[in-house]
C-alpha cells in the first residue's frame, strides 16, 4: 500500500527537486560571489600582472616607461653576479633549515616532557606566547637583549666569565643570532602540533614496551618517534616552507639584511628591489623564483605525506 502511494507521487517529487536544484544553483553563485570577486581582483589579476612584470623593466609608476626584456631578469638572477645566489639564496636556505631543525628538536624534547608533567596547559601557553606577539616587538626586544654594551645576554655571558659577543654586528654570527630569535618565537606551534600527536599514542604501547624491558631512550626512539611520524613531517615541512618565505623578523632586526649582506634573504631582497630600488621587474622575477622553490617543496611534502600514510592530505 505504502509502496503504491510512493510510486504515484514519485515523479512529482522528482520534478520539484529538479526545480529546487536549479534555483539553488543560482543561489550557490550568489553566495560565492564575494569570495570570487575578491579572488579576481586580489589574486588572479595580480598573478598575471606580476608574471608579466617579471619579463619587464619598470620603476612602478608610469606605464609608458615599461620595457619588455624577456628572460633578462631571470638570467640576471642566476648569472648576473648580484649576489642573489650567494649569499642571498644560501642565507634563505640556512635560515629556513636552521630555524626549523633547531626548533623541531627543542620542541620534540619539550613536548615529550610536558605531556608527563603537571600543569601541562600552563607550560604550553608559556611556550606559545611569542606566537601571538607581533614581530616588531619580538625583533626589538631581542635587539636590546643582544646589545653588546648593556644587553641582558652579554651581561649574563660576562657574569659567567665569557667574552662579549657582537650578536648582530658580526657578519659571521648575525644570521645565526636571528635564527635563535626565529626559534624562540616559532617553537610554540611545533610544541602544539607535537604534543597533540603525542597524546594520540596509547599508553598501552609504552607499557608493553616497558614490560619487554625497553629503557626510556629506546622507548622514545622505538615507540614514540615512529608513531609520531605524521606530526613530525608536518612540523618540519610546513615550518620549512614558512621559513623560506619569512623576512619580517630580519627586516625588523637588521633593517636591510646587514651587516653587509650577511642576513639578507630572498624575501627581503625582493621587497627592497621593488620598494627601495624601484626594480619592479627584477622583484617580480624573484617572487616567482621563490614561488617555484616553495612549490617544489610543497609537492615533495604532499608526496611524503601520502607515502607516510597521513590522512587528509
Amino acid at each position: 500500500m505504502g509502496y503504491e502511494l510512493n510510486k504515484q507521487i514519485a515523479p512529482q517529487v522528482k520534478q520539484g527537486r529538479k526545480k529546487m536544484i536549479t534555483q539553488q544553483g543560482v543561489m550557490g553563485y550568489i553566495f560565492m560571489l564575494p569570495s570570487l570577486v575578491f579572488y579576481f581582483i586580489f589574486l588572479l589579476i595580480p598573478l598575471v600582472f606580476s608574471l608579466f612584470l617579471s619579463f619587464t623593466e619598470w620603476g612602478g609608476f608610469d606605464f609608458s616607461l615599461i620595457k619588455w626584456v624577456g628572460f633578462k631578469n631571470y638570467k640576471d638572477f642566476f648569472f648576473g653576479g648580484h649576489g642573489f645566489l650567494y649569499p642571498v639564496l644560501t642565507n634563505t636556505l640556512i635560515f629556513a633549515f636552521g630555524s626549523v631543525l633547531v626548533s623541531f628538536f627543542i620542541a620534540l624534547v619539550i613536548s615529550y616532557m610536558i605531556t608527563r608533567l603537571r600543569l601541562e596547559g600552563f607550560w604550553r601557553t608559556l611556550y606559545f606566547l611569542p606566537m601571538v606577539t607581533n614581530v616588531v616587538a619580538v625583533g626589538n626586544v631581542w635587539d636590546f637583549m643582544y646589545d653588546p654594551t648593556n644587553g641582558l645576554i652579554n651581561s649574563f655571558l660576562n657574569t659567567l666569565g665569557l667574552p662579549t659577543v657582537k650578536f648582530m654586528d658580526n657578519p659571521h654570527i648575525a644570521l645565526y643570532s636571528v635564527i635563535i630569535v626565529a626559534v624562540w618565537s616559532g617553537i610554540g606551534s611545533a610544541i602544539l602540533i607535537l604534543s597533540a600527536g603525542l597524546k594520540n599514542i596509547p599508553d598501552s604501547y609504552y607499557e608493553a614496551a616497558t614490560i619487554d624491558g625497553a629503557g626510556s631512550f629506546r622507548l622514545f626512539w622505538n615507540v614514540t618517534v615512529p608513531l609520531l611520524k605524521p606530526s613530525i613531517l608536518f612540523v618540519l615541512i610546513t615550518g620549512f616552507i614558512g621559513g623560506l618565505q619569512s623576512f619580517n623578523l630580519i627586516l625588523v632586526m637588521t633593517g636591510d639584511g646587514g651587516p653587509g649582506n650577511s642576513t639578507n634573504v630572498l624575501g627581503l631582497e625582493m621587497y627592497n628591489q621593488a620598494f627601495k630600488y624601484g626594480q619592479w621587474g627584477m622583484a617580480s622575477a624573484m617572487a616567482f623564483i621563490l614561488f617555484v622553490i616553495v612549490l617544489i617543496i610543497t609537492l615533495i611534502q604532499l608526496r611524503v605525506f601520502r607515502s607516510g600514510g597521513v590522512e587528509n592530505y
Partner: peptide
C-alpha cells in the same frame, strides 16, 4: 590551490592595484 600561493607573490602587484 590558492592556499599554495604564498603571500609575498601578491605584495608587489597588490600594492599597485
Amino acid at each position: 590551490a590558492t592556499m599554495m600561493f604564498p603571500a609575498f607573490l601578491f605584495l608587489i602587484p597588490n600594492f599597485y592595484i
